[in-house]
Simulated assay, not measured.
Amino acid sequence: MVHSLLSAIENVVAITDSEKSLIAGLFRLKRFEAGDFFLREGEVCKQIGFIEKGLVRYFINDDGEEKIYSFSKENQFTSNYESFGPQKPSKQSIQVLEDSSIYVISFQDLEKFYAEVRNGERFGRIMMSEVFIETLQNLNSLYTDSPQTRYENFIRENADLQQRISQYYIASYVGVKPQSLSRIRKRISF
């Protein structure tokens, strides 16, 4: 239901009833099956999504090895802004991990959102700022935190995802092999 999308926007900026109708018309609900790609490496990202139900992973292919750098779940936006903004081919992939319902908006319709929703550009600026900050925090963590600390932080911040994501994917996100993640899990207890 588009209500979750509108609530997410209203949590950031005020929108009128007429703007809600406009926004509902700009986004369309798209269903994905587990394993589908929201975006493949080499494609141009042509949409931003809001996950109503489901889960996605973000990864790069490093010489045949997939390296996961993030996940998004319900009530979060998903896109590859590095590709979406300049409309250039993506170096990353976004794959759906569960059957998912995602509201999508095209590049052209997002421009309409910015132009016709009073606080549309402000919403976009705030969301991009959040994405930028999260990216910097993840990068800093990758360089400064041990795999155990990254795992502990992941579990603390995403307790609900532990049962939804394979240990193989969590290991990739933490930056270790699955066997090393097993050893880390044995050493700690939550």
Rank of each mutant, 00 (worst) to 15 (best):
L142I: 06
A14H: 12
Q162L: 08
Y114T: 10
V56N: 00
V96W: 02
Y81C: 13
Y103C: 10
I105D: 13
L136H: 11
K91I: 12
Y151P: 00
V117C: 04
Q163S: 13
V176G: 03
I51V: 09
F37V: 02
S18T: 01
D17T: 10
L161Y: 06
N80V: 05
G85S: 13
R125I: 03
D17V: 08
V104L: 15
Q47M: 09
D36C: 08
L97K: 01
V44M: 10
L136Y: 10
Q163D: 13
S101M: 15
I102A: 10
S21K: 12
I51S: 00
R118F: 11
I105N: 14
A159T: 09
Q167F: 01
N153F: 01
G49D: 06
M127A: 08
E66W: 06
G85P: 00
S72W: 05
S101I: 10
I48L: 14
E65W: 01
M1E: 15
E157M: 07
N153G: 09
K177F: 07
E65K: 15
R183Q: 14
L39W: 06
S141W: 00
Q95T: 02
L139H: 13
S189Q: 08
S182A: 12
Y58M: 13
A34Y: 00
G124D: 06
P147G: 07
Q76T: 09
G124S: 11
S189H: 09
E65A: 05
L6R: 10
L136N: 12
S83L: 04
F190I: 12
I23H: 03
R31I: 03
G42M: 08
R40L: 10
R57T: 03
K46N: 15
N119F: 09
G42F: 06
E19D: 04
D63G: 15
Q163E: 14
E10M: 15
V104M: 11
I126R: 12
S79R: 01
E116M: 11
D160P: 00
G124F: 03
Q162E: 11
E82V: 13
G120H: 00
V44W: 04
S79G: 07
L6T: 08
H3W: 06
Y81D: 09
L110D: 04
F27Y: 08
T149C: 00
I133K: 15
A34G: 11
A171D: 04
S182H: 10
N11L: 04
N119H: 11
Q92M: 13
A8M: 01
N75D: 14
K177D: 14
A34I: 00
P89Q: 11
S21V: 07
D17E: 13
L26N: 04
S166W: 08
D160L: 09
Q47R: 13
Q95P: 01
G25R: 02
E33Y: 06
S189K: 08
S182P: 11
Q167E: 02
F113G: 07
I155F: 10
M128F: 14
R150T: 02
I155W: 02
K30L: 00
Y151M: 02
